[in-house]
Design a protein around this nucleic acid. Structure first.
Lengths: 150, 150
DNA sequence: AACTTTTTGTTGTATTTGCAACAATTCTGT
DNA sequence: ACAGAATTGTTGCAAATACAACAAAAAGTT
């Protein structure tokens, strides 16, 4: 059987490692760029949803976001109709570094895809979306304590 | 531009998360399964190479492997011709749980690929290998302190 | 309306992760 | 043969990560 998991794991760890090293320039700690980008792109999103998007533990997201707040890159806002949630927004400072994060991401993307034809890029993208959708079903189940059978 | 990085990141974190939860059954801590599998499959491999295969920091690999040794799942062996290196081998105990790790991996693989045709599976596999090869070049450069320009 | 379950957020604690810095070999170029 | 570079391994430290357990609000059920 074709082992695609390992390839994906290697790619993900390598890219994450590169990003973390490069973003220290902006005083972003390991992983923080992930959260900041999502909040910039989804103003008003809540913590729980950010964790789901990134596929990371809720408490990890909570702490990463708390740190972004301390650093003045995002802020939390209470909701009038729902006392439980806190909506997240990037501050001016947060938006100020966002373009740099984008640029790095695009560069990594281009680098990763070099040598692939435009058709191949479309193909891998579409297939990855399918795989991601498959995987997120199981992730949410297992995270909620369900056991997979095999 | 097609954002394949994010898809890959999501997939990788979700799968890793699932594996870590499931492998607690075997008293394997976060990430340990990665190292054990590689050592089982490559008897005599050295630490440095394991880190490169997995795309993880050398010191992280060092500690994960040290822990596997403490747990009696692998052992280190000195080399006669090279005093610097230590060759790694799985113990009987290590090999004993290897099949379970394989089974889990295969199940995750099948789950992730469900809904894809055999041709699509071949395609995504080949494309991922290309991407991984692109990425590992930059990873090794950045890890050695080189700056990427963009 | 009362009860149960789900959602959302937090904190305590243990562990992994990785950068910096070091040491000891081995390899390379002259 | 030797000096400098690269490889391999280790430890100190700071930080991210995530499981457990809790609390409070909201949504769903009878």
């Amino acid at each position: 059987m074709k082992e695609i998991l390992r390839e994906i794991g290697m790619i993900a760890r390598a890219l994450d490692s590169i990003s973390n090293i490069e973003f220290k320039e902006f005083d972003l700690a390991k992983g923080q760029y992930l959260y900041l980008v999502r909040i910039c792109e989804n103003p008003g999103i809540i913590q729980e949803k950010v964790a789901e998007m990134i596929k990371v533990d809720r408490t990890t997201a909570a702490r990463a976001i708390a740190k972004l707040e301390e650093q003045g890159l995002i802020y939390k806002e209470k909701d009038d109709h729902n006392k439980k949630i806190k909506k997240l927004f990037a501050t001016e400072q947060g938006y100020a570094i966002y373009p740099s994060l984008q640029r790095e991401g695009e560069h990594s993307n281009r680098m990763a895809l070099s040598g692939l034809s435009p058709e191949e890029i479309d193909t891998i993208h579409d297939l990855l979306v399918k795989v991601r959708k498959n995987v997120e079903v199981d992730w949410e189940l297992v995270k909620k304590g369900h056991k997979r059978k095999y």
